[in-house]
């Protein structure tokens, strides 16, 4: 069995007196799609920010690709960051650059490929995420929410990362785009052996792409299991999350 890609032990996070994570542990296996669910404000984004080395937890250990990742110096953190891609909740495209420049930006920073090749790579990612070539020259302010999501995904993919973090990737997408997004994710995983950690509220995504679902509640991961098992889980927070008729409908398909 391979070492987990991400290994979190006894993580504690606090903002002032507000305890967000209280002894949280989680493992993400190589090649899996792990979905992170939980109520609003339960600390999903904060956990993601800790995994991508933006926020430092107060206590606990975080290992990425088998290396200890808390308290890294900037150079080591940068080397680690090159190995993963991040899709932020609101896209976080650079507003001063065109879409194509946004996507090509990591290549400009981290490689010495010629400009023409860089542009091709960026354009290829835009095609892969299903964005019109006409949109490539637009600035982010001229894009719709769904287009921003796709462009941001293209940017997260351009370095061919081993690990991809997605914060609510399908929220704000129309159903067809959300389905296409799920398919893309599955394809990418098959081709590249990609490991994915995604925060999502989209039951269809959970159903289709997530290998395991982790439920965050009370500052801990209260359950990690394939969706079908979670639907029968007895923890009250898990039950509350999957109580609604939308989730119940899925039970039949298990």
């Amino acid at each position: 069995m391979q070492a987990p890609v991400i290994e979190i032990r006894d993580l504690v996070t606090r903002f002032g007196s507000h305890v967000v994570h209280d002894g949280l542990s989680l493992e993400v296996r190589r090649g899996e799609v792990l979905a992170l669910v939980g109520g609003s404000g339960s600390g999903k984004t904060t956990l993601l920010r800790e995994m991508i080395l933006l926020t430092r937890p107060e206590r606990g250990s975080l290992r990425l690709f088998g290396q200890e990742a808390t308290g890294l110096d900037e150079a080591r953190a940068r080397a680690l960051r090159r190995r993963f891609g991040v899709l932020f909740q609101h896209g976080a495209l650079f507003s001063g650059l065109t879409v194509l420049e946004n996507v090509a930006w990591p290549l400009v920073e981290h490689t010495r490929l010629p400009a023409a090749v860089r542009e091709e790579m960026a354009a290829l990612r835009l095609r892969m995420v299903g964005l019109d070539p006409e949109a490539a020259r637009l600035r982010p302010s001229a894009l719709s929410g769904g287009m921003i999501k796709r462009a941001a995904l293209a940017r997260a993919l351009v370095m061919d990362p081993e690990l991809l973090f997605l914060d609510e990737p399908t929220s704000g997408l129309d159903p067809a785009s959300a389905d296409a997004f799920d398919s893309l994710l599955l394809d990418l995983r098959r081709w590249l052996g990609l490991t994915v950690v995604m925060i999502t509220h989209d039951l269809d995504s959970l159903w289709r792409v997530a290998d395991r679902v982790a439920v965050l509640a009370e500052g801990r991961i209260v359950a990690v299991a394939p969706l079908c098992e979670l639907l029968h889980h007895e923890h009250p927070a898990v039950r509350a999350y999957f109580e609604g008729p939308r989730a119940r409908r899925r039970i039949g398909e298990c």
Partner: peptide, 23 residues
């Protein structure tokens, strides 16, 4: 075997030139 679809996909998605029209 596992890269077949990747090549197929690239050929599907990127027919012809990828360069977007210059501004």
């Amino acid at each position: 075997e596992r890269y077949r679809t990747l090549f197929h996909e690239l050929e599907q998605r990127a027919p012809g030139s990828l360069r977007p029209p210059p501004p």
